[in-house]
Simulated assay, not measured.
Amino acid sequence: MSKERLTTFIDAVIAIIMTILVLDLPHPEMMTLFGLWTLRANFFSYALSFFWLGTMWANMHNEWQNIRGIGKDTVWYALLMLFFASLFPYTTSLVAENFSNTVAQSLYGIVVLMVTLFNFLSYRSLVVANKEKKVFYLQQLSRKHFMKWDITIKIIGMIITIFIWPPAMTISILLAVVFILFYPRERSDV
């Protein structure tokens, strides 16, 4: 399979998921500022999921530019990543309706962690398939370092969610998005 075919498929599925997210937003019972304010958890959950998916998509777009080949593993990891990503609209609505619920937040966290895991595994499989590309390999070494921090933040959020404070999962995902956006990337113009 060509890289272009896989990236086009990933782009399409992520676009559909992001569209479904907005379709799940409820309308206020009364069209007033107070009516909109009562839906703040819904809007926060939507925005967090949208920007988390958008950040993932942007990073994939930027980093996949330097690859030539993909292997079978990459295709399967991408498919598994998209499977879990397709659960975002469902888990986002659960969190929006049950923001302080441990089960809802944990389920959301599991989906985020599984998407992160399969995204990481797909990048790792790309390194194997593109060993001859020194620039790509160096970028992936940098990515591996920041992925450790990303996963650590999310796991800490999951632990706090389960044992102490349910909204910690959502907050940790927000922190991870901010971390990913501002993580210093090393330029490798090799």
Rank of each mutant, 00 (worst) to 15 (best):
F51L: 14
E4P: 15
S2Q: 13
R185G: 14
T170M: 11
E29F: 03
W165F: 15
M31A: 14
Q140A: 03
F51V: 15
M81T: 00
I160W: 05
M56Y: 09
F34G: 03
L181F: 10
V128D: 06
M114H: 07
Q139W: 06
R143E: 11
Q105E: 03
I173K: 00
F88D: 14
I20S: 13
T8Q: 12
R124Q: 11
A85Y: 15
M169E: 07
E186I: 14
P184N: 03
V13W: 08
G35Q: 04
G35D: 01
D150W: 05
A104D: 00
W52Y: 15
L107I: 04
S93Q: 02
G157Y: 12
L126F: 08
K131N: 12
L36P: 08
L6Q: 07
P89Y: 10
A15E: 09
D150L: 00
L48R: 06
M1S: 15
N130H: 12
K148C: 01
M147P: 04
L87F: 15
V13Y: 09
I156H: 05
N42R: 11
P166Y: 04
S49A: 10
D24H: 13
V13S: 07
S45R: 01
F43T: 03
L79T: 05
I159L: 14
G35V: 06
K131R: 13
V177Y: 11
I14V: 06
D11M: 00
W37A: 01
V95K: 08
V190K: 04
L25V: 01
V128Q: 08
L79P: 02
L39C: 05
S125E: 06
M56W: 03
H27Y: 10
M169D: 02
N42V: 07
D73E: 12
D24A: 04
F118I: 00
N101C: 10
F44R: 03
A129L: 01
L6E: 04
A15V: 08
V135T: 11
K148E: 04
I14S: 05
S125R: 10
S100H: 13
D150C: 01
Y137I: 00
I14F: 07
A41T: 06
G35H: 10
N101K: 04
M18W: 06
V177R: 04
L94S: 13
N119M: 11
K148T: 09
V111C: 13
Y108N: 03
L94V: 04
S100G: 13
A176F: 03
T8S: 15
E186T: 14
R40T: 02
T152V: 09
I10Y: 06
A15D: 06
Y123S: 11
M31V: 02
T91V: 04
T92N: 14
G54R: 02
Q139N: 08
F120L: 05
T19E: 13
L121N: 02
L53M: 12
F118H: 04
Y77L: 12
S49P: 14
E29Y: 01
W57S: 07
W64M: 08
S49M: 09
E186L: 13
F34Y: 07
F51D: 10
L107G: 03
F136Q: 05
V13L: 10
V135I: 12
V127K: 02
M169G: 01
V13R: 00
T91M: 11
I155W: 07
M30C: 02
I14L: 14
M56I: 10
H27I: 06
A41M: 11
I20Q: 14
F43S: 11
N130V: 06
V115H: 07
D73L: 08
A104M: 00
L175V: 13
I171T: 00
E132F: 09
S172G: 03
L79M: 11
T161M: 11
